[in-house]
């Protein structure tokens, strides 16, 4: 099986995990390493930097529903999902992002076509400008809600269900 690394921008909403779902269903024949990346500026004060812990920060950012959804995805795509990891990108320019992509050997980037970014943290920033300018293969997916009345929930567990991939 081919191996592939996919980068997906996330704002820690359950909704953004739908991209993971589509990436996994499109690449059914590949072994995937999926990197969920969130843009976050590192604190610039001395004490904050000293006490900085990525693990703690991620724990703070991930909601219970987000974690449960990730686990559901893992149990669904057990055989072709090698790794699903969450990371923080804290570079300031396009060059830094390119370096990050190169370092993590990213093959493809998946993003939502109707991307609406909602900062989870006060120093969160949107990765889309970097992704759009990046030279890596970008695949945009569009999701459609199944119910007439359903607005897709951002943070509820049902956000990962009741919708379908409408276009790539």
């Amino acid at each position: 099986m081919k191996k592939k690394t996919i980068l997906i921008p996330t704002d820690f909403s359950v909704k953004s995990l739908n991209i993971v779902k589509s990436a996994l269903s499109i690449n059914g024949d590949c072994e995937l390493r999926i990197l969920l990346v969130h843009g976050l500026e590192l604190p610039d004060s001395m004490t904050d930097l000293l006490l900085f812990s990525k693990k703690k920060l991620l724990e703070e950012l991930e909601t219970k529903e987000f974690r449960a959804s990730c686990q559901m995805l893992i149990s669904k795509y057990d055989s072709n999902l090698i790794e699903l990891s969450v990371d923080i990108f804290s570079g300031y320019n396009k060059r830094a992002f390119e370096n990050y992509i190169e370092a993590n050997e990213v093959d493809e980037i998946y993003a939502l076509a109707d991307h609406d970014f909602l900062p989870r943290h006060k120093s969160s920033f949107d990765l889309m400008p970097f992704i759009n300018k990046s030279s890596t293969n970008l695949i945009k997916v569009k999701w459609m809600s199944l119910g007439e009345n359903f607005k897709q929930e951002r943070d509820e567990l049902s956000g990962i269900f009741f919708n379908q991939l409408s276009s790539i």
Binding site: E148, N149, L157, S158
Partner: peptide
């Protein structure tokens, strides 16, 4: 209107969601 039923399993926990309009 249709009622939506979804099933998923997260870390030894079966999650059943029933959603209506």
């Amino acid at each position: 209107k249709p009622v939506h039923v979804a099933l998923g399993v997260a870390d030894k926990e079966i999650i059943l969601i029933i959603k209506d309009d």
